[in-house]
Amino acid sequence: MKRTGNTILITGGGSGIGEALAQRFHDAGNTVIIAGRRRDALEAAIAGRANMHAMTLDIESADAIEAFAKTLVAAHPALNVVINNAGIMRYEDIGARRDLADAEATITTNLLGPIRLNNALVDHLKAQADAAIVNVTSGLAFVPLVAASTYSATKAAIHSYTISLRDALAGQVEVIELAPPAVQTDLTPGQRTREGYQPLDEFADEVVALFGQSPTPAEILVERVKFLRFAEAEGRFDAALEAITQLARGSGH
């Protein structure tokens, strides 16, 4: 992925990882469109920045995604990079019968959302020079967090889907996976200040540096996520699973 001169869409761009990356990509000389549900958060993220734009998007609605894609391409025909970052994480107890609303919303947002948006934009991207799709997964795609099992499962599914998409679009659209570790954001209550999580600015700076490599790695992996990403390959899976399970229990989950 080229470093500058892109027109980039970032979903979930009004806060957290999405906002931090959007502003850094904008600083590097790219036109950036951020999308999300909350207009106020989007406007705050783009305030004072030329060539940074905000569009509202209901990532849970298939019809809304189709309409959004048409409006987006009409307004920004140079669009050549899509970063699927929008996601939700809910803690759940899967050991007993429960209301599945949180699980179903997680699947709709984290799994169907990127699949639907990529489907709506893939033909446009294939016609662009230097096109790229970046799917944001998680270290939990590789070692699940029991207390957030559906979230972990959706990220594992997006990892698998990204491998398939990379092969299907080889030579047409670059397909990249970004797998964050636990980062200090508002993804879950109390996470912004949780000890042991990577500070957001430190994470975003490391990610941008990795994107600056040539060629861009197929997987963007900061140092902190490698404990999970390579746990199974290095024969550490059970120990990693136990470690993150105990960490979650220590924080009340």
Rank of each mutant, 00 (worst) to 15 (best):
P180H: 13
L165C: 05
Q246V: 12
T4M: 07
L221K: 08
A28Q: 13
D93I: 04
D238K: 12
G16P: 03
Q184A: 08
P114F: 04
R38S: 13
G12V: 05
I10E: 03
L79E: 02
V32F: 00
A28L: 12
R39I: 14
H124R: 05
G212V: 02
G36T: 02
L187D: 09
M1K: 11
L241C: 08
A218Y: 08
G252W: 00
I115T: 11
D102L: 09
L112I: 02
A62G: 11
D99Y: 05
L228I: 09
E177V: 01
R224C: 08
A204I: 05
D58I: 01
R49A: 09
H76N: 06
Y161I: 03
E174H: 11
G5M: 06
N85K: 09
T154E: 03
F237G: 06
S61R: 01
Q198D: 09
Q213T: 12
T11R: 04
S61A: 08
D102T: 12
T7M: 01
H26M: 05
K226M: 12
D130T: 10
I115M: 14
A20F: 04
G252P: 09
R37D: 10
V173I: 10
L241W: 10
Q198P: 00
D58N: 14
V175F: 01
A239N: 02
G48P: 13
Q198H: 03
V73L: 10
L111K: 10
I65N: 04
D99A: 14
M52P: 02
I59A: 00
A156K: 03
Q172S: 14
A96P: 01
I176C: 00
V173D: 03
A45N: 00
F227Y: 11
I46S: 02
Y91V: 05
Q172N: 08
I220F: 04
A209T: 12
A233H: 11
N51Y: 11
R38C: 06
D238G: 03
P215M: 08
A233R: 14
T31Y: 01
V134L: 08
T11V: 07
T11P: 01
L178C: 09
E223G: 13
D186C: 01
Q172V: 08
A147N: 09
R236N: 13
A96F: 00
R49K: 15
E19M: 07
L125Q: 06
R3S: 11
L125C: 10
H159E: 14
A64K: 09
T216R: 11
D130P: 06
A131V: 07
E206Q: 15
L210G: 03
H76G: 03
E232A: 15
E219R: 15
T185E: 07
A132V: 01
T162L: 03
Y161M: 07
D58R: 07
A209V: 10
